[in-house]
Each structure stands twice: as structure tokens, then as C-alpha cells.
């Protein structure tokens, strides 16, 4: 992938990710999260992980964000009224976030592989869904089944939580 496209999609992802934090209206936040996830899916595809990129679009930008929008509209959340902002707490939060990013950048700057380009891939006739699928059903068969049970438990939990007489 050309550096130009990388920086376009990375910038798109970061700008709309910041939009999630900065928007006052929850619907606008959710929609900018969709754009951020689409940029992230493009970055996955630039790393030759086509399966993960498509899963990202289908599951996150599709299912999860529809669920978020559904809940926001169900609860009928308006744009937040301007409350008294606790400036001390906000400044503390920003300071902690800046300190975290400085630490991350310092660690990446000292990481000895960080300046190496990606090694080339061999031309393969088998696509990556095949490789991921065979690994998933052979080496990771037990975790895969446990994930299935987890999704079932989550479904049952949502039904129980949504019952009206829950108090």
C-alpha cells in the first residue's frame, strides 16, 4: 500500500475517533465511530488481512453500530445539556492521556523492529480465509467451541436482563 493511502486512512480513523469523544450528540458520535471503523478496516486490508478487514466491516460497522444506534434512539437521548464541567477532573484526564501517549511513543521509538519495512509475502494461490479457517478448526478448536458457548450465554443474559420485571 502506498504511504499516501496509509496516511489518508490512518488520518480518517484518528480524526473520526476524536470526533467520537468530542461530539455532544450521541448519534453523531456513533456515526463518526462507523467511519473510524471503516478506516480501520482499510488499514487491515493494507496489511493483507482481508478476512479480518471484512469481519471488521460486517461485525463492527454493521452489527455493533446498528445496535448502538438502536439503543440511542430507543432511550431517546438528546444532545447533552451543558453541565458544569469539572475543570480539575478534565485537566487530570487529559494529563493522564497525554502521559500515556508519550509513554507509548517512547516505547515504540526504542523498539528495535519499528524502523524495519514489512517483509514481502510469497505469491499464494490460497486466500487467507483458508489459512485462518484451518487454524481455527484444527489448532484452536477448543477455544472456538468455548467462544460459541460464550455467545450463547450472552444471548441468554440479554434476554434475562431485558425482562420487564427485573428490579
Amino acid at each position: 500500500m502506498s504511504p499516501f493511502l496509509f496516511w489518508i486512512f490512518a488520518g480518517l480513523m484518528l480524526v473520526f475517533g476524536a470526533g467520537v469523544v468530542l461530539n455532544r450528540n450521541p448519534v453523531a458520535s456513533a456515526l463518526s465511530l462507523v467511519v473510524s471503523f471503516l478506516g480501520l478496516a482499510a488499514l487491515f486490508m493494507s496489511l493483507d488481512a482481508y478476512f479480518i478487514g471484512i469481519i471488521q466491516v460486517l461485525v463492527y460497522a454493521g452489527a455493533v453500530m446498528v445496535l448502538f444506534l438502536f439503543i440511542i434512539m430507543l432511550l431517546d437521548l438528546r444532545a447533552e445539556k451543558l453541565r458544569k464541567i469539572n475543570w480539575l477532573a478534565s485537566a487530570g484526564g487529559i494529563a493522564v492521556a497525554v502521559a500515556l501517549s508519550v509513554q507509548i511513543l517512547y516505547v515504540i521509538g526504542n523498539f528495535r523492529f519499528s524502523q524495519q519495512p514489512f517483509p514481502p509475502l510469497a505469491r499464494s494461490t490460497v486466500d487467507d480465509v483458508h489459512h485462518v479457517g484451518s487454524l481455527l478448526f484444527e489448532n484452536y478448536n477448543l477455544p472456538f467451541q468455548i467462544i460459541g458457548v460464550l455467545v450463547l450465554v450472552a444471548t441468554i443474559g440479554v434476554v434475562v436482563l431485558s425482562k420487564r420485571e427485573l428490579r
Binding site: 500500500m1 504511504p3 496509509f6 490512518a10 480513523m13 484518528l14 488499514l43 496489511l47 501517549s101 507509548i104 511513543l105 515504540i108 521509538g109 523498539f111 523492529f113 519499528s114 524502523q115 524495519q116 519495512p117 514489512f118
Partner: peptide, 12 residues
Amino acid sequence: ITLGDYLIVSGL
């Protein structure tokens, strides 16, 4: 584009 660029974007 190197590995470090992706890690920086991820960290941000």
C-alpha cells in the same frame, strides 16, 4: 510504511 507507523497509529 514501517511497523512503527502502524504501532504509532494504534497507540494514538
